[in-house]
Amino acid sequence: MPPVVKSALAYYVRAVAYVSLWAAASVTLVMANSYAIRVDEFEFPMTISMCGPLLTFLVALVAVLSGHTKLTRRMTAGEYARTMLPVGVCTAFSLAIGNALYLYFEVSSVQLLKAFSPVVTGGMLVALGMDVVTAPKLCGVVMMTGGTALACSGMTEFSVVGFCIVLGGELVEGSRMVLWQHVLKTKKMPMIEGLLYYAPAAFVFLATGVAIFERDAFSESENSRKLSRKPHLYLGIGVLGALVSVGTVGAIQICGSLTFKALAQVRNAVIIFGAVLFYGDDLTIREVCGYVVTLSGFTLYQYYRTQEDMREIRATGYDAIGEGEKEGLLAKQKRGQ
């Protein structure tokens, strides 16, 4: 099989694997978080969010200590503060804000409000010179923007505080995606190594927030009983959070942060359907039409973005498939010569 074909096949296989892992884990996590906050009335979003980074760090640490993954670098304190600390802080904010929204909106409404996220991420990538604007991709982004605006205009519930939290969350989430793409691709950092470095920062920041704002999660007996009555729920949320982190980093490493955020719109459609089916959330015709337009914009954008990736693979033969695969392919080519 020609090297270029192998590169393209590896690209698709890895992309589908990581996106599938992320999609399955994140859909389940959203439903579990909503259940814990809205149904079980454990109204402590930072405490719930804290479990994911902790288990992510433990998984990455085991991978390193077992010899499965070898660290490629030793970060200085200054380098860590410039690269991984911002990623961890943005992740902590993003997780906490994402769960806090369930205090103000139903599951379906939260996903509709998050549909604007690809536009924010795309704007940041273009502003930082990490992506280029083309007419077809711009058309897709415009459709996503218009569809989101139409969907949100049909919402039957509205909270000014919740909406402000959404806007702040979109900016933080966009920053997180761009920072991850910069670390993984510009710094050539392997996925497990990135998880090992970022997770402690996210956990410490969330733990600090819990100590300041959510001490009642552990100090009040009623809240402690909720944790002890359903330990499988809260442990499961932590495991799902770790799986989402692995899928997120893997997908960003291969597909890019904007494509990843665009893919989130498809996942959101599944979440909205599940919320209507299991939680009885209400949807208006305007919301459904707006989301259809958003998904159509995503499809258009993703088609042309994939074409760009394939042109890069055909031009380089291997550069788009990652540093490890690149080294392996080069070695095989040398042996063939």
Results as ranks from 00 to 15, higher is better:
residue 335 R to Y: 05
residue 86 P to D: 01
residue 314 R to T: 05
residue 92 A to E: 00
residue 39 V to Y: 12
residue 171 L to W: 10
residue 144 M to D: 12
residue 114 K to C: 07
residue 97 I to K: 00
residue 27 V to L: 14
residue 103 L to K: 13
residue 97 I to F: 02
residue 194 G to E: 06
residue 130 M to T: 12
residue 116 F to I: 11
residue 98 G to S: 13
residue 263 L to A: 09
residue 320 A to Y: 02
residue 230 K to F: 09
residue 252 I to L: 03
residue 157 E to M: 15
residue 9 L to E: 14
residue 205 F to R: 03
residue 281 D to M: 08
residue 26 S to A: 13
residue 326 K to N: 08
residue 16 V to S: 13
residue 125 L to F: 13
residue 293 V to T: 15
residue 141 V to I: 15
residue 200 P to I: 01
residue 103 L to C: 08
residue 120 V to Y: 07
residue 141 V to A: 10
residue 230 K to T: 13
residue 77 A to K: 09
residue 36 A to P: 08
residue 274 G to M: 11
residue 22 W to L: 11
residue 132 V to S: 12
residue 331 A to W: 10
residue 336 G to M: 14
residue 271 I to L: 03
residue 112 L to S: 07
residue 271 I to M: 03
residue 8 A to Q: 02
residue 8 A to I: 01
residue 313 I to Q: 00
residue 48 I to F: 06
residue 55 L to T: 12
residue 141 V to F: 08
residue 28 T to M: 03
residue 300 L to N: 10
residue 227 L to S: 14
residue 238 G to A: 09
residue 35 Y to G: 08
residue 251 A to Q: 00
residue 209 G to M: 02
residue 164 C to T: 05
residue 128 L to A: 15
residue 36 A to W: 09
residue 177 M to C: 15
residue 128 L to R: 15
residue 151 A to F: 06
residue 278 F to N: 12
residue 284 T to W: 08
residue 312 E to V: 06
residue 98 G to W: 03
residue 87 V to W: 03
residue 125 L to Y: 11
residue 20 S to E: 15
residue 172 V to A: 15
residue 164 C to V: 10
residue 326 K to S: 06
residue 63 A to D: 07
residue 326 K to P: 01
residue 112 L to H: 05
residue 158 F to I: 14
